[in-house]
Design a protein around this nucleic acid. Structure first.
Lengths: 233, 233
DNA sequence: GCCTCTTGAATTAGTCGTACCTAATGGGTT
DNA sequence: AACCCATTAGGTACGACTAATTCAAGAGGC
């Protein structure tokens, strides 16, 4: 995922970022740049660059005469894809998945409604194609192929909404769906009802029926919430 | 806003960040670290730290033998509060406000529904207090006081939803509301209907009526969409 | 005697400049 | 066309110095 080895400071981040987001250093913990540089066997310059990045994510704060202070969770840039990945890889993965699924349940229906008004013919075709791909792989434990089309489907919807903020959630949805397939539930074939809903959403978007697209997508996300035992909003 | 002078690299970012997000350097433009360091009259170390931060926001990409390449807009971390601020301060402020308002229209109703189920008594009280503050300042051109309570109201709703992703949008909503008061529409007293809706949302949350809280908040956000001439989703 | 204010020493991040390494790139050679 | 090498710009390391902030010791006042 992303670019693991984009320099030494990247290696440091790949170690330090997950450690911080996992709560290994409680809020208020103080780290010293030189000590960290020694621990990771890099120069101070490299460590400083890593700290700057963590600072831009609001994971830490650097102050003179004090050191690098870990900030409380409520300060973190939880929308930063890197932070999301670190947290999904860590111990509170379930909590993170719940947060993201609730976000999906808010965003995706609205995005689908907008997509029904704004999608280009090409995007409508893509959507239908994805839905058909899901149908074709919904039986016989073809989970990977199913996931591929599922992710593509939601990406197209979010992109077709014409809203850049929605479009940028494509990666998040991909992570959530992949997580569901690989780690958590879904050991058997996907729910046929969900597959049908995706096909119907594609139809609604093609038919420019915004309300129907929104309502159908809402049903999809409600299903996702139930899978995680979240009370439906 | 935030911390303007958190070191030399911060100064550089305050210049370079807005320039990039404003499109002064089109996607694909190549900058050289040394040249930038000279231009901003800082050492290469400081410039490198600034570039690292821009890189973590996916505004630029640094490659050997090439330089620092500006990435296309679709790659940017548009949820980074710093990026949002830079873009709101720039030329495509209107487009940014539209994006954010659409995001609000998706998130806030769901957040209000959750808040109705999860808000603590203290949060219910805060909400009522904010709504009353809005009423008290809804006449007589007390725009600043009205804005203050409006922002506080939405912040409480987002926080009370119990979802960290929603809670972190409090700052975004604050920017949007402040922008509406200071730059764009609203030269006269706020719409009485909107004020009433806020009071009713506070009541619905207090009464644990999730559906009503969600629907009323949807009406508020639909109003915000109309103010910006966005077709209601 | 206790409290407060001042002062200064210790500490740690911030900045700078240099030197050298590494890897892409492009052109020249075979 | 394949290969090789010089060029170039970022990557890393190190050392010296600066500046801000904290903490504690001591002076002064109550």
């Amino acid at each position: 995922m992303s670019t693991p080895g984009r320099g030494l400071h990247g290696r440091v981040l790949d170690s330090l970022g997950p450690a911080i987001t996992a709560g290994e250093y409680p809020a208020g913990s103080v780290l010293r740049t030189d000590e960290l540089a020694q621990r990771f066997e890099v120069s101070r310059s490299v460590m400083r660059e890593a700290v700057r990045v963590l600072e831009s994510m609001h994971l830490v704060e650097s102050r003179r005469r004090v050191g690098v202070t870990v900030l409380p969770e409520c300060e973190w840039n939880v929308y930063d894809p890197q932070v999301i990945r670190w947290r999904l890889a860590g111990a509170d993965r379930p909590r993170q998945l719940r947060s993201l699924t609730v976000l999906r349940s808010a965003v995706e229906p609205v995005a689908a409604g907008l997509a029904a008004r704004l999608a280009t013919p090409e995007q409508c075709a893509e959507l239908t194609e994805c839905a058909l791909g899901m149908v074709a792989n919904s039986r016989g434990h073809r989970l990977e192929e199913y996931l591929f089309h599922d992710v593509a489907f939601h990406r197209v919807v979010l992109t077709a909404s014409g809203n850049e903020m929605f479009a940028r959630l494509g990666g998040v949805v991909a992570e959530v769906l992949a997580g569901r397939t690989h780690h958590d539930v879904m050991f058997e074939d996907p729910d046929p009802a969900a597959v049908t809903l995706h096909v119907q959403v594609a139809e609604a978007v093609r038919a420019r029926d915004a309300e129907r697209a929104e309502e159908l997508t809402r049903q999809i996300t409600v299903g996702a919430l139930h899978e995680l035992d979240i009370l439906a909003p």
